[in-house]
Computed example of a mutant assay.
Amino acid sequence: MIRVVLADDEAVVRMGVGAVLSTADDVEIVAEADTGRAAVDLVLAHRPDVAVLDIRMPVLDGLDAAAEIRRLGTGTGVLVLTTFADDAHISRALASGISGFVLKTGDPLDIVVGVRAVAAGAAHLSPPVAKRVIDHLSGSGPRLRTTDRVTGLTAREREVLGLVGAGMSNAEIARHVHVVEGTVKVHVSTILRRLDVRNRVQAAVVAHEAGLVPPAHRLL
């Protein structure tokens, strides 16, 4: 069972997201909050698998809450609920250690998919949000070209990076490339270090930009 803490300051939205998650027989909401601070406290109290956080909340917003959850080392993955109006927060979001973005106004079932992916240790980017993230980073000023960034990776590392971009967990990648999960963990750690990115979400964005993601999962 995937245990979830859900936080959104709008009661109607929180109820709606809770109703969607309740349709999944492998997801259990263990606590709800209406501020980021309360969400952090509940994560400490319940140690859930996933925290689903609205990006905009009082007292402590979703991104600051995500960063604090990461610093506390709870092992809880963070899935952020966002809107297209939140583009200004993209850079902060990528730096805060979140595991995924889900669009509030998108397909409700994508929230369930996102929770399952994050619980499995994968990165999850709703396609419209991922496209927005990529567009944002593409226009964020001078930086090393993506093709140059991935040149230093081995063929196997590029393959693994593409599967990270497809939203696969380490276990799924291991089955796909026919190696043990421990080997995939080593590859992912090496990829993050060589790309100089903080987490799988940032690595997934690089994978999409570089065209390494399998065709069925591509956004560009």
Rank of each mutant, 00 (worst) to 15 (best):
A88V: 11
T105E: 15
R149F: 02
G114Y: 09
D196H: 08
A31P: 04
G121S: 10
S99E: 14
G18E: 09
D110R: 15
L42D: 10
V164D: 01
G16L: 07
V20H: 03
R175D: 13
R3I: 11
L53R: 08
L6W: 10
V59S: 05
S140M: 14
D135Y: 01
L163S: 00
L137E: 14
L219K: 01
L21N: 05
S99M: 08
V213L: 02
R158T: 10
V17Q: 12
V43R: 11
G73H: 08
T74E: 13
A119Q: 10
T74W: 02
S140V: 06
D8P: 00
L81M: 12
D54Q: 04
H46G: 02
L220S: 12
P128N: 08
T74I: 06
I2D: 06
H46S: 04
T190D: 14
P48Q: 04
A95W: 00
R56N: 13
R56Y: 10
A45Q: 15
R145I: 00
R156K: 09
G139H: 11
A155F: 12
T76V: 10
K131F: 09
D87W: 11
S189Q: 14
T154Q: 06
R143L: 10
K131M: 11
G165A: 08
S22N: 15
R92S: 07
V179Q: 07
R143E: 12
A39Q: 13
L81D: 09
I2A: 02
A31E: 15
G121K: 05
S99A: 15
R132N: 14
V40G: 02
V12P: 02
L109Y: 10
M15C: 03
V115Q: 13
L53A: 10
T83E: 14
L163H: 08
I98N: 02
N170Q: 13
L125Y: 03
V180K: 10
H178F: 12
D107A: 14
P127L: 06
G106E: 07
H176L: 12
A67C: 09
D64T: 06
A130K: 01
A65C: 07
V113E: 09
G167V: 09
V197L: 00
S22F: 05
V43D: 09
R132C: 10
D107K: 07
A130Q: 04
K185V: 04
V17A: 11
A24V: 04
G162D: 03
I90W: 00
I98G: 03
V160A: 10
V112T: 11
G114V: 10
A67W: 00
T82M: 04
V5Q: 03
L153C: 08
G77N: 02
D196C: 01
I2Y: 07
V20F: 04
V201T: 09
A210S: 11
T83D: 11
T147M: 08
V40F: 07
R149Y: 02
V113C: 04
V150Y: 04
V197S: 01
A207W: 00
K185R: 15
E10I: 14
L137H: 00
S189F: 07
V188S: 02
L81E: 09
A207F: 00
T76E: 13
V4K: 12
